[in-house]
Amino acid sequence: MKNVVIQDFEKNYAEILTDFDRYNFQEEWQENTSWQLKLSVSKTDANQFTFDLINFESTVLFDNQEFVIKQMNHKFNGLRQTKEVTAVHIMYTMQYDFQYDVISGKKTISQLLHHIFDKNTQGFTWSTVGTFPSVEQENFGNSNLLDLVNEVLDDYFAVVIADKKHLTFYSKNSYGAKTENTIRYRYNTDEITLDCDTTNLRTEIRGNMSGYFPPVVYRNKEAFERWGLRIATPVDDERYTDENSMKLRLENELQYYPAISCNVIMKLPYELEKGDYVVIVLHELNMNLDVQLVGYNKYPLALARPPELTLSNSKKDMINIQRDIIKTIKKLKKGASK
Rank of each mutant, 00 (worst) to 15 (best):
Q7A: 04
N12T: 08
L17W: 07
Y23M: 12
F25D: 09
E28P: 00
W35G: 08
L37S: 09
K43F: 08
N47E: 11
S58I: 06
F62G: 07
F67M: 08
F67V: 06
F67K: 10
N73M: 09
F76L: 14
N77K: 15
G78H: 09
T82F: 12
H89V: 10
H89G: 10
M91G: 05
Y100N: 09
Y100P: 00
S110I: 11
S110R: 10
Q111S: 10
L112M: 12
I116N: 06
D118K: 03
D118H: 01
D118T: 04
K119S: 12
N120Y: 02
T125A: 09
V129Y: 00
G130M: 07
G130S: 14
P133A: 02
N142E: 12
S143G: 03
S143L: 07
L145H: 10
L148C: 08
N150H: 15
V152D: 09
V152R: 08
V160W: 01
I161Y: 01
H166A: 14
L167Y: 04
T168P: 08
Y175C: 12
T179Q: 11
N181M: 02
T193M: 06
C196I: 04
R202Q: 06
T203Q: 09
N208S: 15
G211H: 04
F213M: 06
V216Y: 01
V217G: 04
Y218A: 05
R219F: 14
K221R: 13
E222P: 02
A223Y: 07
A223L: 05
E238V: 00
R239C: 02
R239A: 10
D242A: 00
S245N: 11
L248M: 14
L250W: 08
E253M: 09
E253H: 06
P258R: 01
K267P: 00
V281W: 00
V281H: 01
Q292V: 01
Q292W: 01
N297T: 13
Y299Q: 02
L303R: 06
A304T: 11
T310I: 10
T310Q: 14
S312Y: 01
M318D: 14
I321R: 04
K333M: 12
K334N: 13
